[in-house]
Write a protein that binds this DNA or RNA. Structure first.
Lengths: 157, 157
DNA sequence: GGTATCAGGTGAAACGGTATCATGCGAGTA
DNA sequence: TACTCGCATGATACCGTTTCACCTGATACC
C-alpha cells in the first residue's frame, strides 16, 4: 500500500495476496476460456449456454428442466430461455413426463445431434490451444483441482 | 457420445472429456467463488466488480481508467459504471492528469480505504472456507496454475 | 380435503459487452 | 507555426443476457 504514485507493473495481474485474488482470477480465467470456446459454436448460431445444455442431453438422454438447472448451474429462468431457443431451432424438444404432469423432459433431436457434432470439429483444437502454453500434465492437473474445488465432498458448500 | 439412453450420474458434474469441459468448469468455479466472496462486500453495498477496482487503486495508487481496464479485464464501459458508483458513494474520485487532458486518474478516498479495510474483516475467513476441503498446498497450486493459464507468456492469446 | 412443496413459466430489473461519438494527443508535412 | 490524419481516452446509447421475485398448476403428505 505505497502512498502516492507507484510505478505501473510489468504485468496486469492483480495482487496475489488478496483474499479476493482467487475469485478475481477465476473470473478472468473463465472469460478467457469462454471467449475462446464461444468461437466454436458461434458459427452455428449458438452460445455456450446452449451447448452446455446439449452436452447434458447427449450425456444423459432426456432430462427434466429441473435436472438441467442442477447439471449446468444455470438459473431456471435461463434454462427456460435456452430450451426455448433450442426448440425454436429444432435442436431439442420438450416432452411430457409420464409419471409427473408438472415436469417436462427435454430431449435432443437428430438435428440437435448434428449441430452437436458440428461444434466438435473445431472445439478440440481450440481447447488444446487454450492450454498449449502449460507444461505436460498441467492441464489435467488444473482440471482435477478445479473439479475438486468446485464440487466439495458433500458438507461444506 | 453414447447413443440412446444412458444412466444418470450420481454427481451433477459435466462430462470431463468434452473440449468444453474446462470452460464450463471454470464457469461454475467462478460462480462458487464469486458468490462466496460477494458476501463479504454485500453488506457494504458493493459488488465484487467495485472491489476489483478498489484493490487496484490501493495497490497502485491513482490509476487512469485505461489502466483499470487493463488491470481488471473489465470492459471500459464497465469501468465507467463502477467508477461512477464509487464516486457517488464517495469511495473514489476522478482527477485530472497533468500531462494529458484526455485522461482521468481515479484515486481512492479516505472513506474508500475504510470500506476496503472493512471488507477485509470477513474476507480472509471466507476465502479460507472456499479451499478448506483441499489438501495442503493445493490452493496455492490452483492459484499458480490458474495464473499461468490466464496470462499466457506473451505470444499466444 | 387442506397444506406445503415442487416444476415450470413470466416479467422487471441488474449486469455486461458492443457500437458509436466527442475530444485531445502526436506524428508527419509543408 | 499551422495543418491534417491517425489513434487514444473517456463517455454514452443500445442490446443481449442473467438474475430476482412472483405466479400457476401439479404432487405429496397429513
Amino acid at each position: 500500500m505505497s502512498s502516492g504514485t507507484r510505478k505501473s507493473r510489468a504485468t496486469d495481474r492483480l495482487d496475489d495476496g488478496s483474499p479476493f485474488a482467487l475469485s478475481l482470477l477465476l473470473r478472468r480465467a473463465h472469460s478467457r476460456a469462454a471467449s475462446a470456446m464461444a468461437a466454436a459454436v458461434r458459427p452455428l448460431g449458438l452460445g455456450l449456454r446452449h451447448f452446455a445444455v446439449l452436452i447434458v442431453l447427449v450425456d444423459r438422454g432426456p432430462t427434466t428442466q429441473r435436472d438441467l438447472v442442477q447439471a449446468t448451474g444455470v438459473d431456471k429462468a435461463g434454462i427456460m430461455r435456452v430450451v426455448d431457443d433450442l426448440e425454436e431451432n429444432g435442436l431439442a424438444v420438450r416432452r411430457a413426463v409420464p409419471g409427473d404432469r408438472r415436469a417436462r423432459a427435454v430431449e435432443i433431436t437428430v438435428r440437435g445431434t448434428e449441430v452437436f457434432d458440428a461444434a466438435h470439429v473445431d472445439a478440440p483444437g481450440l481447447a488444446d490451444d487454450l492450454v498449449s502454453h502449460l507444461r505436460p500434465g498441467e492441464a489435467e492437473r488444473l482440471m482435477d483441482l478445479l473439479t475438486r474445488f468446485t464440487y466439495p465432498p458433500a458438507d461444506e458448500g
